[in-house]
């Protein structure tokens, strides 16, 4: 009983910390952007900040289960959904900022860009998949979906790969930070080597 209480306290404080760490920078960001104190081009700044923020949060969600296993801290799994939902929220703001503040609701330009620009196309595919995961993250749906829930949520691995390529293709020449993120992604996916191999084999059964 005593240890159980302790775990719930841990989870609670961790969740409070996650809420604050995810929300406070966003409040400050939009406040500064709104009063025109966020550099010369606040539009670019909010787009980059929310994009990188979403990527960081995605990578943190991928870090949770290796951490929980390695250090036998099973309770960490309980904050994974919250982190995933914040990753989605940042990605949602990223896309919304692009449409509202950069393109300023020039919808035809938006659809053209999504279709014609590979880095935007794969970014959008990643965002749509992430949206599906966010929608189905509720426990009731999870129970209803049974086994297919896990299949769907394994798309997380594909999403993070798409996001890494999206970042890499979006920059003009400064490749070092995208490359750093690609390395992080590969490391985090390498913890799932066996699982990913099994998944790939079900999609592409080998003859040997």
């Amino acid at each position: 009983m005593n240890t159980k209480l302790k775990t719930s306290t841990k989870v609670f404080s961790l969740k409070v910390f996650i809420h604050l760490a995810a929300l406070l920078p966003i409040v400050e960001l939009y406040y500064l952007a709104f009063i025109d104190q966020l550099g010369a081009d606040p539009v670019q700044r909010v787009i980059h900040f929310t994009g990188i923020g979403a990527f960081n949060l995605l990578l943190i969600t991928l870090l949770i289960s290796p951490l929980a296993k390695k250090f036998k801290q099973g309770y960490l799994i309980q904050v994974r959904r919250l982190l995933g939902l914040y990753a989605f929220s940042y990605a949602f703001m990223h896309v919304l900022n692009f449409i509202a503040f950069d393109l300023q609701f020039a919808w035809s330009l938006f659809f053209n860009e999504v279709v014609e620009r590979p880095y935007i196309s794969i970014g959008m595919v990643g965002f749509v998949l992430l949206t599906l995961l966010a929608i189905t993250s509720h426990n009731t749906l999870r129970r209803k979906m049974g086994k297919s829930w896990q299949h769907l949520h394994n798309f997380n691995y594909l999403i993070v790969i798409l996001v890494a390529i999206h970042f890499y293709w979006s920059v003009k020449s400064e490749l070092i930070s995208p490359l750093f993120y690609i390395v992080l992604t590969v490391i985090l996916l390498s913890f799932r080597y066996k699982k990913l191999k099994a998944m790939l084999l079900t999609f592409f059964p080998s003859n040997t």
Partner: peptide, 17 residues
């Protein structure tokens, strides 16, 4: 090759909006 050049965003005074 990676983005459209059909329009541009003029940096002026005023913030996000």
């Amino acid at each position: 090759p990676r983005w459209s050049q059909a329009s541009e965003r003029r940096i002026t005074s005023g913030g996000l909006f």
